[in-house]
Design a protein around this nucleic acid. Structure first.
Lengths: 137, 137
DNA sequence: CCTTGACCTCAAGTTTACTTGAAGTGGCAC
DNA sequence: GTGCCACTTCAAGTAAACTTGAGGTCAAGG
């Protein structure tokens, strides 16, 4: 496969060039070289960007993502990964409660949703997950 | 029930007073009055804060949250709520993929995770949900 | 009555994740 | 060879969600 120009990467991923430079600066992706001043990327950067997008969509910070799938290094702390996975489980439950709450709210005729017992129950349920996780800032 | 002092609300919810003032300024919560300068909150503010926390944990912006569960107004656009619910569904799927990916990564012996076919498959799967949702900025 | 300190306001600072703009460089089509 | 313009760097700007600090107020305990 051929190396990719920054604009090529941008085109294929939808991530703006400025963001790609920013990510490189932050150590999330790496150019394999330069042609003159211009960065050259290995096609694998597309995978990395996919991964980064996924992480972001999951509510992680760039620094978290870097931590999890470190530099280009092979050292991924398994404990950290497990902890993150558990964190995500809680987040999923919260999202499910939120979703149910919203769906109910869309149907429920109560004046204020806080007056609806079903809604309040869902909220309490979700509230129980005392996950003050910094994963979703 | 008695009205609550800002510090009382802070104590019971864990939300700092400064944040409570900020939320009030943004119209997410409302003091029912003042004793001198000091805000007085109805105990129902605890429910609202619960709801706000839930929304935040689900990746919504404060402005989204305000939109969904508007001021103290009863006007909640059901279509908006449904759309949000659908958005959340996609987010949940992404989180599930992320979770599985992490769990797998915690076990998989591959040098780089990108070299692991299982991992890549999970990523592609998650990537398919082209949810460039602004719900999780 | 008088002090105390928790609360107030308002402005400015912080962090995260970028974007924008100015000024420079050099690959490549002609 | 030479000029265009996509690329470069670096500094500064933006938005969201708060936090911090200075200076002021006033309800309550002694």
């Amino acid at each position: 496969m051929k190396d990719l120009d920054i604009s090529e990467v941008a085109k294929r991923t939808g991530v703006p060039a400025s963001t790609l430079r920013y990510y490189e600066e932050k150590g999330l992706i790496h150019a394999i070289g330069r042609r003159g001043l211009r960065r050259l990327f290995d096609p694998s950067v597309l995978d990395w960007l996919n991964l980064i997008a996924l992480g972001k969509a999951s509510g992680f910070r760039l620094s978290d993502i870097q931590q999890m799938f470190g530099k280009d290094g092979p050292h991924i702390d398994r404990d950290t990964l497990m902890k993150k996975a558990v964190e995500i489980e809680g987040q999923i439950r919260q999202l499910q409660a939120m979703r149910e709450g919203l769906l109910h709210a869309a149907k429920c005729p109560a004046e204020s949703h806080l007056e609806c017992e079903t809604f309040r129950k869902l909220m309490r349920l979700a509230g129980k997950q005392q996950l003050r996780s910094k994963a979703a800032p």
